[in-house]
Write a protein that binds this DNA or RNA. Structure first.
Lengths: 113, 113
DNA sequence: CTAACGTGCAACCCTGGAGTTGCACACTAT
DNA sequence: ATAGTGTGCAACTCCAGGGTTGCACGTTAG
């Protein structure tokens, strides 16, 4: 779980990799050479990015003839959103508890004043 | 916008920084020294992490006497979730379009066969 | 005033990763 | 068979950044 979060956030931290993910989400599939044609880096650099994306489970490559077609797998993204949601929930809960506490304080002060 | 996404994902890519965010979400506030006591790194390392978290807008530090109290600001997190949601939506849309296309194909084939 | 504590700043390692080039292999087409 | 094309692997450079130590400053407590 924590590992997955680590992999996903690290993968999404790089602009080239985010572009690849967006591109695959929009067009369904692409080859390393195609992607390299739309990025200011070499094909091998793109291949490395695809490898790390695949290691994170965000992408899956299939060899078809002499091409390798990559497709998006958005499932691991939920690990990231869940982490954020958890943190947000904890924070909201703290704020609510603080508000309640301040409310009681106000009551007590008013009652005694 | 893109900048914010960049900053947030990069910030959350580091385990120490995620710990800091989680800790602040749970306990409301903390000082660099406190956080360093719960992490296997030096206080200065924590201070650097807090600085980058503050640069990403995820955290805000206030000097109180000789202490600096840091609090969480979860607002920038929405940039990350929005990016993910956007990608997920595009992907779902593509899947739906593909399904519809396959449905028509099946109809046409059935109708003509 | 002095000692102790929490911070901030600066200089310094050192590893990881993003990028490159070069080469070898597999598949396709002629 | 041969040329062309898309990949993958390996070696190499380069630098951002995570970590450290050392020091100076401001604040608080005795």
């Amino acid at each position: 779980m924590g590992d997955r979060v680590e992999a996903v956030f690290s993968a999404l931290a790089d602009p080239s990799r985010r572009f690849v993910v967006e591109r695959l989400a929009a067009s369904g599939s692409a080859t390393p050479t195609e992607l390299a044609g739309e990025l200011p880096v070499s094909r091998q650099a793109v291949a490395k990015h695809l490898a790390s994306l695949e290691a994170a489970g965000l992408v899956h490559g299939t060899r078809i003839g002499r091409n390798t077609v990559y497709r998006l797998d958005p499932a691991p993204l939920s690990a990231a959103t869940e982490w954020i949601a958890r943190v947000g929930a904890e924070w909201d809960q703290r704020l609510a508890a603080l508000a309640a506490h301040l409310g009681r304080e106000a009551d007590r002060t008013t009652g005694e004043g």
